[in-house]
Nucleic acid binder design. Sequence first.
DNA 1: GCCGTTTTCGGCCCGACTGTTTTCAGTCG
Length: 578
Amino acid sequence: MNNRDIAAAFDEVADLLEFQNANPFRVRAYRNAARRIGDFPEPLAAYVDDPERNLTELDGIGKDLAEKIAELATTGKLTMLEELRAQIPSGVMALLRIPGLGPKKAAALHKELGILSLDMLRAACQADEVQSLKGFGAKTQEKILAGIDFAAHADERMLWAEADEIAQQLLAHMRKLRGVRQIEMAGSYRRGKETIGDLDLLVDAKDADAVMDHLAKFEAGATVIGRGETKLSIRLARGLQIDLRVVAAESFGAALQYFTGSKDHNVILRSMAKDRGLKVNEYGVFRGDKRVAGETEESVYASVGLPYIAPELREDHGEIEAAQAGRLPDLLELRQMRADLHAHSTWSDGHASIREMAEAARAQGLKVLAITDHSQSLGVARGLTPQRLREQRKEIQRVQRALGDSILILQGAEVEIRADGQIDYEDDVLAQLDVVIASAHTSLRQPREKITARLVGAVRHPGVHFIGHPSGRLIPEREPADIDMEALFAEAARHGVALEIDSHPSRLDLSDAHARRAAEVGCLLAVNTDAHSPEEFALREYGVGVARRAWLTPAQVITAWPRARLVAWLQKRKKART
DNA sequence: GCCGTTTTCGGCCCGACTGTTTTCAGTCG
């Protein structure tokens, strides 16, 4: 049983306990543990087997949870979870997805009316049975009925890039209003998470009503979910919820810190403040009734003795400890990116010529571009034969002469790691290339051992520079291939082969957790776009976001290296090949 | 269920909003 399975089991325990109205702190202990386990870089099963180590060394894992982890890791089952499942029908848990229905109300519906599913609940609402329950009324029944269809897809999250599009429109809309002094997006969007559940918007303005009225006009099909004196929630027609808070200037930093989260990060921050006799809320930092900080986020962190912590790090993944120790990483920034080593042209499945791609890359401020079209066996992408590869080289040289020294254009290839593990070009063909990406696009459903062996074999192949989309998830709806990432990282670190962070936001390829782990064991990383058109170079922003969440510094990301250093690195690996 | 120079019990972040209440519980973030 892997970490993800163990985490899922604990999350389910938390859901079920919550439903049973258990001690909320006990529920939180399970949730905390689930999150920690899910993020934990090493397989916990190995921890269980190691007599030298004890699971209780991990933060938030005590005697009880350690035993349950051991049970899951060794037997694949958890007795407690099975008992809980037996007590609560699974359909009842679906009720919790209805907005406004929490464990208490869901339990009442189950207990008083025998509701076992969303369908039964719909019928009960239509028969006016719900509004007669104690604690329920006509309005609640109405809201439940409206929320049932929504519940079916309530846990769907939007990709960051899709949310970004809406966020930019939203900011533009709000900035048109006079009297808006400061405006920022907060929440998971600001933290740059892979997926976004809703958008949080923070505005500094005097007239809160005017701001709320203006947001309500953002989209014709939007519905108002709730409105108070300083807070408005709306839901767009396409399902996305937007939460607005209006605050005063002296509270803006505190509110921004608070609404950026994450929740777990804030819980720690607030408890640290409490230890110092301070209270932190969205209005500021207070000692007694006296406000001591809050205008800026920096002032909030400073009040508890911490340096500013970048939003991407605020996940309770050790950033507080690192900040205390003065060891926060010097995070990669978009403006530091100098190269893109993975781009396609019309020579294979790209949509633009080499010259168009090079000019677009240059316009984005890049100093190095590698044209890496597909290799011969990938017929669907019109992969290049060695002969066409030679012709392409001449074309690249022509474009290079035309563009001069402003950008260095390298010839590379995205070479297929075939189903049998063979690399798709002979060594003498590889030797002609400046950059070699090895990627697997086919037979991604192979058994774990086999597909891992393919990738590890590519890492060992002399002269491969990096592995393209290493987790094997090319299509967002698909699960990533079942790859032993630990083994892949270890081998990549040993051979000095880099791993690619694909900036294409629809791919969710190398997760931030994986990227961080890879860097921890000494792998180099490359933030690339895999651009098929000039516009896609702009997607680097997303890849840089992944790198930031992975705590990566410019030194660990080869595409942020100065041109001379990058070229030297590429040549060194090329030499290793011959 | 975890944690501890406030350590074996009693804490565990904090506030807005809603709907159903007659002063507050439940939900949400």
